[in-house]
Write a protein that binds this DNA or RNA. Sequence first.
DNA 1: TTGTACGCGTTATCAT
DNA 2: ATGATAACGCGTACAA
Lengths: 329, 329
Amino acid sequence: MATIRDVAKHAGVSAATVSRVINDTGYVHDDTRRKIESAIKELHYTPNEVARSLYKRKSRLIGFLLPDITNPFFPELARGVEDMMQENDFRIIFGNSDENIQKEKDYIQTFVQNNVVGVIASTNHPDADIYRKLKIPVVFLDRTVDNRPSVYADGHEGGKIAAHEMIARGSRRITVMQGPASIRPAQDRYQGAIDVLNSHGMDYNVIRTTSFSFTEAGKWAKELFERYPDTDGIIASNDIVATAVLHEALRLGKNVPDDVQIIGFDDIPLSSLLTPALTTIRQPAYDMGRASADLLIQLLENENVDQKIIQMPVTFTERETMRKVGHHG
Amino acid sequence: MATIRDVAKHAGVSAATVSRVINDTGYVHDDTRRKIESAIKELHYTPNEVARSLYKRKSRLIGFLLPDITNPFFPELARGVEDMMQENDFRIIFGNSDENIQKEKDYIQTFVQNNVVGVIASTNHPDADIYRKLKIPVVFLDRTVDNRPSVYADGHEGGKIAAHEMIARGSRRITVMQGPASIRPAQDRYQGAIDVLNSHGMDYNVIRTTSFSFTEAGKWAKELFERYPDTDGIIASNDIVATAVLHEALRLGKNVPDDVQIIGFDDIPLSSLLTPALTTIRQPAYDMGRASADLLIQLLENENVDQKIIQMPVTFTERETMRKVGHHG
DNA sequence: TTGTACGCGTTATCAT
DNA sequence: ATGATAACGCGTACAA
């Protein structure tokens, strides 16, 4: 790899002058500029980001922490973050935390050791010391705390809509799947749903689940129909669980949506390809990713960011696992 | 952030001695070691990786390039890579290439600028100059070329199995979906399938597709049944397409697998949750990711790696979109 | 066993 | 308009 000194020698100038043309700082004669530029090309010189980072005490790297990229909600988020960062010449150091606080700590530490200028984190512990003590901007994605910079969808509203539609389309023995207690968005959805259910004086059942994993989703679906075999409406904690519930319902010979209505949350890409296609509350995952990256960049540029907390709207996405309004038995 | 000199001052020694205890290199008296260790703790000192990287001309970072993390096959792969790297104290700089050679170039360049010690790439252009000229080890994941280090599944064999099972279970008017011409694994599967079909003297139809995206999968599914309404067996290029085909078949009132058998490729997590559950050729994605990371680490540690090309086995995963052997009409 | 001095590649400051 | 030089934080010869 050629260094700035090699270029300087090649062009018959000093390293300082080369630095000036690279960074477009200070004066430099057109002729020398041209000489330097051609030297750069000849030697295929590109600046060593590590040396830059050392001197400036900041890099073009940002840290990005996700619970588990294997959960289909997150790739969309990640893609949004990555695209936006890429467009702004930032690179991403990426890690999965498995919601494990120790892993988070380790990652954050190495992020700092690598001079990242900011981090985007989707964590259950946004109020942990690691984050509070960080001297670089942090944007919390999909989860939030106090009034620290965050981007997340309106889960509470989503839960309300889900319950509302369930009732409007005729379900009367509704089961709500609560989702992991440690995951804030899951609880928001749940709370929104039961708020509406309660305010309508409806009776309902609750199934508690402890993860969003594919492997366990089937288990809860089975449990659900064993405990509440005559439930006629299910508000699932996300699309994975909803998919498992749909699968189990069909396996039991139930007609969806005539016997049971099902609604999910997230709108992951496969939801529309299910049969019947899954009705769900959509989160704009990709846009959330982009928005979080955008917010972080603003924070970096230190503009007085007016909007540090961005709550994205959630939309009822009507497909085939719920009946038409007014068309229920 | 405390520096090594701060620690030295605090412990009343020189920076060199501190460096010795950190890296466990050279002699250091137990007493001074203890003093230094406590100084490190008090100051919460962690070494600056950037300075290290600059001095040693190598980091603990590796570059990881994927076509699109949004394609559900890749998160598993990514998770495998990340887990293995994490266990070995490497961090990952991640990018999506969209199969776009220019984007790949840009990423590889910035990887190099950041002193990554190696890269793992899933690319359609493993023979491109950028990779040939790289002076650090590269492992090609899911795709391969010449005899450069790679980890990939046996797509050709997978295609053969798929065709074989289709025939064994009674399909006679088979349609093969070819998948994007630019994607090597897609062509391997296709080739494997038609090899078997041809050797059995079977007639078959081909549908060409140009991407693996969710949005377009439905389009090809429709096209398929319009052009070949009486096909009774479909070998899809991957599980996404297979899911779309299944969706369309059911929409048209066909019985799967009695009227049409369908087989996918990959075994993405949702495949088993479809109804009927998708029969498919499984690639061990997570293990492939791990294996590629392991291979890269070996390459990093010593040049003489015996097994530079790892072909992983593919397995027929029987579920519900194909009939039982011998039970066909 | 420990310290000194230098270099990794870059940028900013201060001369010229 | 350009160059010399110091500094960013660390690790390694080499000296002591």
